[in-house]
Structure formats: structure tokens, C-alpha cells
Amino acid sequence: MLEKTGIPTKEDIKSITPSEERRRKGPVAVIECFQKIPCNPCYTSCKFGAIKEFKDINDRPVVDFDKCTGCGVCVVNCPGLAIFIIDETYSDTEALVKIPYEFIPLPEEGSYVTALNREGKPVCRAKVVKVQNAKSQDRTPVVSLAVPKEYSMEVRFFNINDYFSDNTYICRCEELTLGELRELIRMGYRTLDEIKRISRAGMGPCQGRTCRQLIMQELAKTTGQKMEEMPMTTFRPPVKAIKLGALAGGDDNE
């Protein structure tokens, strides 16, 4: 419950979510302000009249989603940093979520970060599409993240390099990072073999001797499987590198 934990409930979120039809049309502001407090900059900063007039300064903002263009001016004017822009037209599979972010360092455009939900728990990897930090924003930069569409109403913050971090190497031969591994697990790859086939981890010169254990640990941690029960991959010869010439020479007895 919001008042006990700071986390809005599903009902709270439902009450402020624009309709699916509206979300299909383009960017729109989502205002997660659930308490009557004396504060009105969202209303006074909107140039499109998309936030219903405040009869009283304690009114809660009500967005007219038909008038809202998703311009984002209210995002940087909200003292509670409670406004986000979501744009589900970004691509066929991904939505953009614009998040006010007053921390350093700012993420780099094109990099990947860990998208977090309203509890600060990792949701998915997200690409940083844009970082806006104009003078008019007065030190409230806005970071646009591309996330799978189903997470547009879930992702509300991010961690610049933690859970899905991209420079933690699991498989050094094939250069599979922890971030990529977690992304694969999230996508539904659940066994060593599946992960090997999709990512080549374990198929390089070390033949899985550096990565196998790490992949199993991560599978155990994120899926709850027991390590002792995990099906192994097939171990084919040669278990160590051998020169083709040596193989071509054949057995001494042949």
C-alpha cells in the first residue's frame, strides 16, 4: 500500500493509465501523483491545456489524454518527479519510457542500463535512446529508455550498471556478458544447452570450463532451479584443442 511503502498499488496505477487505444497513438504523459498536496506546476507548465484546471492548489492532476502531446515539459517541472512519458509507437516491439534522472554520471546514449520498477527491482535491460539535459530543464535531465512494450507501465527508474551490467563477462571466449545472459534467461532460455546454442557460450576454445559454473549459478539464482538437477550439455571430443595436422596424421596403429 502506497502510504505504507511508497509503492503505488495496481489499482493506483490503473486509475492513471491512458487507454491502450491512446497509447497506440503516440507519446503521452503518465502522472503518478496519488495524494492531494499543495502543488500545481504540472498544470501551470502545460502549454496544451492537457491537465485539467486546478480549482484548488491541492487538486490531483487529471490528464486529458486527447490533448496531451507527450511533449515532456511537465516532467521537468514536477517537484515530485512523478511524471513520465511513455511512447508505445517507438517500434513494433519496444516502447520509450522517459524518466527524470537527477544523478551523475548520466548514462550514455546507446548504452544499456538496468530498468527498474517502482520498487527498484530489475525488470529488464533497456537501451538508453536519448539523454536530454537542456538549460531550460534546470538540472533535471530526462533519460529515454527503450524497453519491451509490455513494460512501458512498469519501468520507472534505472540503474546505470548493476543487474544487467554489460561489462561483466561470463564467457570470455565468445564474449557473453552477464547482461546478455540475464536477457536470455528473461527471454525464456532455461537450460545450459539452450543458452549454449543461442549464445555460443561453452563452444569456444575453453569448452565451457570458465563459463559453465557461472551460467549455472545465474540460472539457479534467477529461475530457482537446483544446480545438482540441471541437465548438462553434451561433452564431445576433443576436450582440448588439437592441431588438425595431428588428427590428419591418424593413429600410429592405423
Binding site: 502506497l2 511508497g6 509503492i7 512523478a82 527498474l116 520498477n117 517502482r118 527498484g120
Partner: peptide, 8 residues
């Protein structure tokens, strides 16, 4: 509260 909560 929500602002610090979503930072974990």
C-alpha cells in the same frame, strides 16, 4: 516516497 522507493 515513491521517488526514493523506485531507487530500491
Amino acid at each position: 516516497a515513491s521517488k526514493v522507493r523506485r531507487m530500491g
